[in-house]
Computed example of a mutant assay.
Amino acid sequence: MTTPSSTGTAPARFLLLGDSHAGPIARAATAAGLPFAGGPVGSGRDFNVGFFDIRHDDLVFRDAAVQERHRGFLAELGVAGIGQLTVPLVSTFGLSAHFFATTENWRIYRSTDGTFAPGFLAGGLFDGIVRAMARDALAFYRHVLDRGLRVLAVLPPQRVPGMSDPQVFAAAQETIRRALVALGVEIVDLRARTTDGTGRQRAAFCEPDDPIHGNLAFGRLIVADLLARGL
């Protein structure tokens, strides 16, 4: 299935830049006839560390294909650089928490019984490790905020694949959420509407036969939230 990267001929309401979790947002916006530019440009693992540079005060993605798509989106919006945007930026970069939560990465921090020390997942060491894992995602948000953009980040579906630890997923997501809030990013958080009593994504909002992604219904809730925020 292909994911739309823009829709409509009316002026775009926002620029969407993200990983695969941006796909349901793009599909839902297209289905609703909501004009936007952008879409998913790669895998979540590619947008945490070392994925962009700043040249002449402009943001340049290191991956040539991503940069080409990024420049195309900006051309649709009639601007030469991301700092010239006059519409909000919606992004999912840095929020694929299941990569941070890969079980093997945290083995050395567990006790012999397989548990973490009390308070570890809420402590400074864990917080610092996760922020280091996502350091350039956070730098991306800082850069665009410093240019005066309105920036919204969308929390991912609450789905944890088998390779990842659910406790670490939740704690890492909270670390990134807090970091983004401190920077001034608006957080689109639909957990109260899309999760069950265990905090996991309800089946009605999951992509079938897929361990991590949300479906079109999830994307529609995100789009409705964006509209409610005035986008």
Rank of each mutant, 00 (worst) to 15 (best):
P4A: 09
T9S: 12
P11I: 08
L15H: 05
L17E: 07
D19A: 06
G23E: 09
G23V: 01
I25Y: 00
F36G: 07
A37F: 09
A37L: 06
G38D: 12
G38M: 04
V41N: 04
G44L: 09
R45L: 15
V49T: 13
G50S: 14
F52W: 13
R62D: 14
A65W: 02
A75T: 09
E76M: 02
L77M: 06
I82Y: 05
T86R: 13
V87H: 04
P88K: 09
P88C: 13
P88D: 14
S91R: 05
F99G: 09
T102Y: 08
S111M: 15
S111V: 10
T115C: 12
T115H: 15
P118Y: 06
G119Y: 09
L121N: 10
L121E: 12
G124K: 05
A137P: 05
H143P: 02
R147H: 15
R147I: 03
V154N: 02
P157C: 12
P157Q: 06
V160D: 14
G162F: 10
P166C: 14
F169S: 10
A171N: 04
E174M: 03
A182T: 05
A192R: 03
R193F: 02
T195L: 02
F205T: 13
P211R: 01
G214R: 05
L216S: 06
F218H: 11
L221C: 10
D225F: 00
A228Q: 14
L231Y: 14
